[in-house]
Design a protein around this nucleic acid. Structure first.
Lengths: 144, 144
DNA sequence: TGCCACATTGACATTAGTGGAAAGGTCAAG
DNA sequence: CTTGACCTTTCCACTAATGTCAATGTGGCA
């Protein structure tokens, strides 16, 4: 699979794929042409890279844990193992964070929907500025 | 609370706080001096902003959903509601993604630890390059 | 053969986030 | 009053990610 098709598959630009490759994150094989050739393994790897970049990891960070993502050299990986565990805890924190935010967001949506329906019931009372401030404050209350 | 203290509290730099403010994400009050003054509400808001930035949201994106994060103007928020729901689904995807990656990482750690202990049992057999390639491939298998 | 779509690399531009320095105001403590 | 530790704004710089353009190679197809 060539770069354009791969990029389309991943929902990113060929440019980004080349960028990741230059960062040492990806090393698709080349065929006779010199054209990059993306196999299933490359695709999955690229997908993970795309996700991590989208989640706020820099290519350097991703590269830092790459030796353990990849292959041979369990010896060379030994040091990377602690990195991996560190990453794992980072990911755990991220997930917890996101889940909290998700719950908050869900509540907020419900509340606003509620407020809206009440507003329309009361036929545009003007700017009563319902105590949404207090509401959103209450919502934000439980965090950190 | 002044900027430095607030920044320390949040684990970011004063510079970043000013940056978020310039982006319109944050509007701490000022006291007589002109010094920024961060109240509890500002702090929580800043904390959420910090998290979202760290999770790969741009200030523009955050700003786009800001009217609904904040306060008054349920009318003005009506349009933002769909944005919020969109964000919610994005977050859901992210969480799913991270959880999958988390599980994969955990498995990978276990496998590598296994491989390492076997290696040391076999007393440095040299570079047999155990079939870790196949292993990590199998691991990556279930994704996308 | 010539055209066209796609590939390559490399250089340059843009946007975000952040750091840092300069030039100056505020304020408390010595 | 001076010093020092904050604060302010403004400007410049760096890095990362990405876009875009230029110059060139490859390969299929009328």
């Amino acid at each position: 699979m060539r770069i354009q098709e791969a990029a389309a598959h991943l929902g990113i630009s060929p440019r980004s794929l080349r960028h990741y490759e230059k960062g040492g994150l990806l090393t698709p094989s080349r065929d006779e042409n010199g054209y990059r050739s993306y196999g299933p393994v490359d695709l999955r790897r690229a997908g993970r890279i795309r996700d991590m970049v989208a989640t706020g990891f820099s290519t350097r960070e991703i590269l830092a844990m790459a030796p353990c993502l990849t292959d041979d050299g369990a010896g060379a990986c030994e040091s990377g193992l602690s990195d991996l565990e560190h990453k794992l805890s980072q990911i755990d924190r991220l997930i917890a964070d996101l889940q909290a935010r998700r719950a908050t967001t869900r509540d907020r949506i419900a509340l606003f929907r509620d407020a809206l329906s009440h507003n329309s019931e009361r036929e545009e009372t003007g700017y009563e500025s319902t105590n949404l401030v207090a509401v959103s404050d209450r919502l934000a209350g439980g965090k950190r």
